[in-house]
């Protein structure tokens, strides 16, 4: 896949009913950890992202919101190239630059990329192994064999995920004995165990009950101490609670990107305002 020159052209194949978005998305910081530059993305012949430009700052929680099918998950899944798994999915234009490198360049090793860009999925998905093995999985994959290193990493990750107190006595127990919220936090611990720079979260609370959701949200705000967090959510209240910055997407386009307070308080775009007021769900 060859990166297109970063000249941000207007997307040609834009849907007709779209009002021409003359928006240059507000960029809170000049250069983010993740910079998306003019990204077009396709599933086979169906285009899912249109000319997305976005700078995600370090050590902040950035939320992607928008109605279902707007492309927010697709965009998130571009950041660690997990979309590569889907046959026919590809970018046709643009770049995603992380740590100064376009990750769609040919010489990028996806396994190295994914070690540094962790991901937490919508539905908690621990492996059918013990809690300990789940957490150290990525380390073992990376070839770490020394027990003390693994032990320490496990403890640290579980502490980061605020799960240490609940699980320290039963690290060898099967992960499926945990509650839903605990499993999701275990997945977070598993993702942070290799200490990635970026943590992607794809609607991490959608399968959880309200109390577990609160706990995970609390955890997310804590995570910014160490990580850059990008979270996709369909729950505006959640975005408001956890995110420092919020990007609103609609029909595969980035409509508006600004501080959360701005987005929810004084959105610049009509679409954003309509969405936040609940015109479309």
């Amino acid at each position: 896949m060859v990166a297109a020159p970063p000249a941000p052209k207007k997307p040609v194949s834009k849907p007709a009913h779209h009002e021409p978005s003359a928006v240059t998305p507000a960029t809170p910081t000049a250069e983010g950890v993740i910079s998306v530059r003019g990204l077009d993305f396709h599933y086979g012949t169906k285009q899912a992202l249109f000319d997305v430009n976005l700078e995600i700052p370090a050590r902040k929680v950035t939320a992607l919101i928008g109605p279902s099918g707007c492309g927010k998950s697709t965009l998130l899944r571009c950041f660690n190239r997990i979309n590569d798994r889907i046959a026919g999915a590809h970018i046709s234009k643009g770049q995603v630059v992380i740590k100064g490198k376009n990750i769609y360049d040919d010489d990028v090793d996806t396994t190295q990329l994914r070690r540094q860009v962790g991901m937490v999925f919508q539905k908690y998905n621990p492996f059918p192994k013990s809690i300990y093995e789940n957490v150290v999985y990525a380390l073992r994959i990376a070839g770490v064999k020394k027990k003390p290193v693994l032990d320490e990493a496990c403890e640290h990750a579980l502490k980061v995920a605020a799960l240490w107190d609940e699980t320290k006595d039963r690290l060898k127990a099967n992960a499926f004995g945990l509650s839903g919220g605990q499993m999701q936090r275990l997945c977070i611990a598993r993702a942070v165990a290799v200490r990635p720079d970026v943590l992607l979260m794809d609607e991490p609370c959608s399968a959880l009950d309200p109390i577990a959701t609160l706990k995970v949200e609390e955890l997310i705000t804590q995570l910014t101490k160490e990580f850059t967090v990008v979270i996709v959510t369909h729950n505006m209240q959640q975005a408001r609670r956890v995110a420092d910055l919020t990007a609103f997407m609609f029909m595969g386009q980035l409509i508006e990107f600004a501080d959360t307070t701005t987005i929810f308080g004084a959105p610049q775009q009509k679409k954003t305002e309509e969405y936040i007021r609940g015109i479309f769900s």
């Binding site: 994914r114 999925f121 998905n125 492996f127 990525a138 994959i141 990376a142 290799v194």
Partner: peptide
């Protein structure tokens, strides 16, 4: 479940791993 392999690959495992 696909979720397992997806999670594993998101953690930087190769296909064989």
């Amino acid at each position: 479940p696909r979720a397992f392999s997806e999670a594993s690959e998101a953690l930087g495992a190769t296909k064989i791993q």
